[in-house]
């Protein structure tokens, strides 16, 4: 075992279901302190990859190491340092919350005093104090998700795998869960799969986009956004009366690719100025404004949009191909 700051190391990971390659040669390293967002369209191989990381599925090829333990060779040690919230947060509906968490703690060999401490801690952390004696089956979706999170973190795992942790929750619940994830991120490696892009921006320090079993983009959310066509685009709102031919003027600026105009109801027009290859055009635009003396209501630079990047990278699927 070598000690490495990387808590998850994946090399050449593949999984074939018959002739179909669900995961096709993934390499990935996640160090402690990182919250990795796993992005991709449905069927891209997110869940399959996570199942292989947790040891539920055996890979067809490649290796996975969790905190130094090889998942294939030392599955029990690897699982011991790993917390997992499967897709849909499946739970035993007949068990009470307390019974269920107790069972998980028991299986994870948390005994005696420490068990009480840890249970109290996670119950407090995810806010389950009110429903401890209730059968899980009678709980609301939000509570169930919290129970799922609680079981995943009860043993203070160094690696946390969360498959769509906020799926199906209302905005308030999503917010709470994200807060929780951020709070836990400090020295752990957390992998979150999601197809909600705002979530990546909200909690992730790194995002990986996966499609057809392959990683097609990897970077911080900002880096990814930079790959959007809207990166460094400038939004400008001026009175329609002042700027009748503004479109033409803006288009003539250097580095401008194209300009779109939205007519707003209150007599203003909003222009979105898109640069060629994300060059900075803010200076040029503001110069033009000063030159023409437009009374500008708003003027700002767009950082780029993730969903745009996402669509751009995985757009081939829109033509109806599904897996």
């Amino acid at each position: 075992m070598r000690s490495s700051p990387a808590l998850i190391e994946i090399h050449g990971l593949s999984k074939h279901f018959g002739p179909f390659a669900a995961v096709d040669g993934i390499d990935l390293t996640v160090p402690g302190g990182e919250v990795l967002g796993f992005l991709g369209p449905n069927g891209a191989g997110k869940t399959t990859t996570m199942r292989m990381i947790t040891g539920f599925l055996a890979p067809s090829a490649g290796s996975i190491t969790i905190a130094g333990f090889d998942v294939a060779a030392a599955p029990l040690q690897a699982r011991q340092v790993l917390g997992y919230l499967p897709e849909g947060a499946p739970l035993y509906p007949d068990m009470t919350v307390a019974g269920f968490l107790g069972f998980i703690a028991e299986v994870r060999r948390i005994d005696g005093q420490r068990r009480r401490e840890r249970l109290d801690a996670v119950i407090d952390q995810v806010g389950l104090g009110d429903v401890l004696r209730q059968p899980i089956g009678t709980l609301s979706k939000g509570y169930k998700r919290r129970v799922g999170l609680a079981q995943a973190i009860v043993h203070e795992p160094r690696v946390l795998i969360l498959d769509e942790p906020t799926d199906g929750l209302d905005p308030n619940q999503k917010h709470e869960v994200r807060k929780l994830i951020r709070a836990m991120a400090r020295d752990r490696a957390i992998v979150i799969s999601t197809h909600i892009l705002e979530e990546v921006e909200a909690v992730c320090s790194r995002a990986v986009i996966i499609d057809r079993g392959r990683i097609i983009a990897d970077g911080t959310p900002d880096e990814l956004k930079a790959r959007s066509g809207y990166h460094n685009a400038v939004v400008l709102t001026v009175p329609r009366a002042q700027a009748g031919a503004a479109t033409e003027d803006l288009k003539d600026l250097p580095g401008v690719e194209r300009v779109t105009r939205d007519e707003l109801a209150d007599g203003y027009d909003r222009y979105t100025v898109i640069p060629t290859e994300s060059v900075s055009i803010a200076g040029a635009v503001s110069g033009l404004v000063r030159e023409r003396g437009w009374s500008v209501r708003e003027l700002y630079v767009l950082p780029g949009r993730l969903d745009d990047v996402f669509r751009k990278l995985t757009g081939h699927r829109q033509s109806g191909e599904a897996a």
């Binding site: 040891g55 539920f56 699982r79 011991q80 790993l82 499967p86 499946p90 299986v107 060999r109």
Partner: peptide, 10 residues
């Protein structure tokens, strides 16, 4: 779906 939970426990 709890099989996934059960079989990923140590």
């Amino acid at each position: 779906g709890t099989t996934e939970l059960l079989l990923t426990l140590p």
